[in-house]
Design a protein around this nucleic acid. Structure first.
Length: 508
DNA sequence: AAGGAGCTATTTCACACGTC
DNA sequence: GACGTGTGAAATAGCTCCTT
């Protein structure tokens, strides 16, 4: 763990208490701004929480050179409870709609398959390649990422409702007083003024964050104007940005009875860090695509699953052998690496692998050129893939789960594998992953009748999907994008009440 | 948990004073 | 008279303790 601890800064218990206090203050202020009820406030604030422990898991999928030391460790922060968990969750709720509605990001294998299916329908000559972002989470630049996240928020259709503009003005004014951040001048008419300039400067942890309105507003003159919706929205996003930065830059964890704070990068163990990284990637996607447009490179498919990017471009320049895909993609990779220093990618093409097939998610994909009526075009095939070091056992037959539940889970699993294999592959190829799965069932302790039951169930479901598709009733692979667009139109207020409900549920 | 009292710490302001 | 400096009063923030 030494190398991970070196990237961290030691903090004292006093600093931890101060951080907790400020996080509570921020929670309280947001409750004032949204007019949240008492129970929500109670849930958002923390007291005497366990400090999340940091530990390491061996990266056993990597080869180790050091026989005694073992493989490198992946740092994990057990963040079931932490003083920023609730606030981070609240912020996640605000930015999640951004992620699910971005056309570039794909959220499941089925979504990816839907995109490949669509591309195959276009019948063009293409080459494919995948790019992998190196160490996405640790290398994220927090300030830039929050900045870009808020830019995306501003451009999105997300609405903020139920905001108290006067309370928000107070929050912004105190942020300005406390941290030397200069507020945009359009905010000033909507911020309160102090009745007197004497005395100590107000701070966020002080009276400003008190639930009591009388205390909060003593010594403040309320603003005379109420902002219009556009300005209010900007004010909300500005203060969200401040809160996000604070949460991400002040995550404290413990190791060996000492307290540590991460110096840079997305904090391990904060749910918000993942979401901010994802929104940052959305910004990156758009920059990348724009760069490609400028250079006249036509990108027919661009699909990103967190840090795994699948791209397909039209085959134009090099009419050489298949291996030359690497040369063609080199240019793409150079563009990708030049966008921002924190995002560096590695390239992989089907040609990189011995069997000419490229693994991505739980798929292996490869192109095949077809020539029909003198026109050549590429079809992308896919089959199921699991990493060689993955556990060969499936859900054990000895688990305490109900018999029916086990069958349903395993049949679902097998269905997923059936779906992952292209329909147009020959039958001999199609049955291979299924046979492997049947063997895995066997070594996990399932009897012949049980295996038969699982297979027939999965097969029936798969046949049904294929039949529906052939009748034109339903797509073979359901894209997720269509669904999330609908969600985008509902305003954030619904999310907020959802949040409130969730918090109460947790409490009960 | 809210509200008040009493306290300390911190900050600003007004004013006196001294120097050039 | 302009300017800098020192001093104390005034005002406020924020803490602890106490009562309800």
């Amino acid at each position: 763990m030494k190398e991970h601890l070196e990237a961290m800064e030691e903090v004292t218990i006093k600093e931890y208490r101060e951080t907790e206090k400020k996080l509570n203050a921020l929670s309280n202020i947001w409750c004032n701004v949204w007019g949240a009820e008492e129970r929500v406030r109670y849930n958002l604030c923390t007291n005497n929480n366990d400090i999340p422990p940091l530990y390491g898991l061996r990266k056993d999928h990597k080869e180790s050179k050091d026989e005694i030391g073992g493989p490198p460790l992946r740092p994990i922060c057990g963040a079931v409870t932490s003083c920023n968990r609730a606030l981070a969750y609240f912020l996640c709720q605000c930015i999640r709609p951004l992620i699910s509605s971005a056309p570039e990001s794909c959220d499941s294998t089925e979504d990816l398959l839907a995109r490949i299916f669509e591309l195959n329908g276009e019948k063009k000559e293409i080459i494919i390649g995948s790019m992998d972002v190196k160490a996405l989470y640790p290398s994220i630049d927090i300030d830039l990422a929050t900045e870009k996240t808020c830019e995306l928020l501003e451009m999105s259709d997300i609405k903020f409702e139920g905001v108290n503009p006067i309370e928000l003005g107070l929050f912004l004014k105190v942020i300005e007083l406390e941290s030397n951040i200069v507020l945009p001048s359009i905010f000033t008419p909507f911020c309160p003024t102090r009745t007197s300039n004497r005395g100590r400067k107000p701070t966020l942890v002080g009276n400003i964050s008190k639930p009591n309105e009388k205390i909060r507003w003593s010594n403040w003159e309320k603003p005379k104007h109420i902002p219009n919706y556009i300005t209010l929205r900007k004010m909300v996003i500005f203060s969200l940005k401040y809160t996000m930065k604070y949460v991400l830059n002040n995550h404290i964890c413990q190791y060996d009875n000492q307290l540590f704070k991460q110096k840079e990068g997305g904090a391990i163990g904060v749910s918000l860090a993942g979401d901010v990284a994802q929104t940052f990637m959305i910004w990156w996607d758009r920059e990348f695509k724009e760069q490609l447009d400028q250079r006249g490179i036509k990108c027919l498919l661009y699909s990103r699953y967190v840090d795994d990017i699948l791209t397909a471009v039209q085959k134009t320049k090099y009419k050489g052998p298949e291996n030359n895909a690497l040369v063609e993609f080199q240019e793409l990779m150079d563009i990708a690496n030049s966008i921002h220093t924190s995002i560096q990618v590695t390239l992989e093409t089907p040609g990189c692998n011995a069997d000419g097939r490229m693994p991505i998610l739980d798929l292996k994909i490869w192109p095949e050129n077809k020539c029909i009526d003198g026109e050549t075009y590429t079809v992308i095939h896919h089959t199921h893939y699991s990493k060689p070091m993955a556990n060969k056992q499936v859900l054990s037959s000895h688990t305490a789960l109900d018999y029916k539940t086990k069958i349903v889970i395993l049949a679902n699993d097998l269905f997923r594998i059936m779906r992952n294999v292209s329909l147009d592959l020959p039958e001999t190829e199609r049955i291979l992953p299924i046979q492997v799965y049947m063997l895995r069932l066997q070594i996990s302790g399932y009897s012949k009748t049980e295996r038969f039951k699982i297979y027939t169930r999965a097969k029936a479901r798969f046949d049904n999907v294929v039949a529906e598709y052939q009748k034109g009733k339903a797509p073979l692979y359901r894209p997720n994008f269509g669904n999330s667009l609908k969600g985008l139109k509902t305003s954030l207020v619904r999310n907020m009440t959802g949040f409130v409900k969730v918090m109460i549920k947790l409490r009960l």
